[in-house]
Design a protein around this nucleic acid. Structure first.
Lengths: 112, 112
DNA sequence: CTGTATCCAGGCGGATACTG
DNA sequence: CAGTATCCGCCTGGATACAG
């Protein structure tokens, strides 16, 4: 049942990153800083309100992002990466770099 | 529907790594080299034959691992990381390092 | 503007049994 | 030894409607 202690350490990071919209949400917040709910919705084309809320809540639970509510009408809520969340950036960068190379790999296969 | 080109690059890597047993399978092959089906099964406690086959097939499709069948009785099949698959190692290492630090983070929260 | 509540389809992963 | 085949429960994510 248990995995090797050394090996399963990767699963913690993976579980946090996994979610249809989490990577793009995190990258948006990392690159563009604090954003309102509606701004995020615009920054992530195709996402529904339900899913945006859902993914944000999960990231918040993991202490990767923070949620700041302004008591006003109309409502205003801002989301930001936590310091802890910023520690995920090297992983996202590694994946982004790999993704770029992956694209080239696929093109090479096709061209052969 | 479409995401920003730059941002969605991370999804390619993520999709390949996602799967309940893929990370540990990859790390095992990376660290210990070529392994037979039964050896992998022993290296990944708790996995069923169905899931081991399933995860191996998916990694094979992505050209991350190779499958070598020896025409003999009893059957012998060996799995190895491809050169291309090795390019995933930095990502796995980054996640492993993060997972280790994450453990400390959780401990700190508890101790506060 | 920033959510919640429902319903629903598809896929993932587990248990189990069977096979060349 | 190295798989396949089947059944099945659960969770994820999409569509849609409603709400403070």
């Amino acid at each position: 049942m248990d995995k090797q202690p050394e090996l399963c350490r990767v699963d913690d990071a993976l579980n946090i990153l996994v979610g249809k919209w989490k990577p793009i949400i995190l990258l948006t917040l990392l690159q563009q800083g604090t954003k309102r709910f509606s701004e995020l919705k615009r920054s992530v084309p195709g996402i529904t309100q339900k899913m945006l809320t859902n993914q944000l809540r999960e990231l918040e639970k993991e202490d990767i992002i923070t949620r700041k509510v302004y008591a006003q009408v109309p409502p205003k809520v801002e989301y930001s990466i936590t310091e802890y969340g910023k520690s995920l950036e090297p992983i996202l960068v590694a994946m982004h770099d790999w993704g770029t190379a992956h694209n080239l790999h696929k093109k090479n296969i096709i061209s052969n």
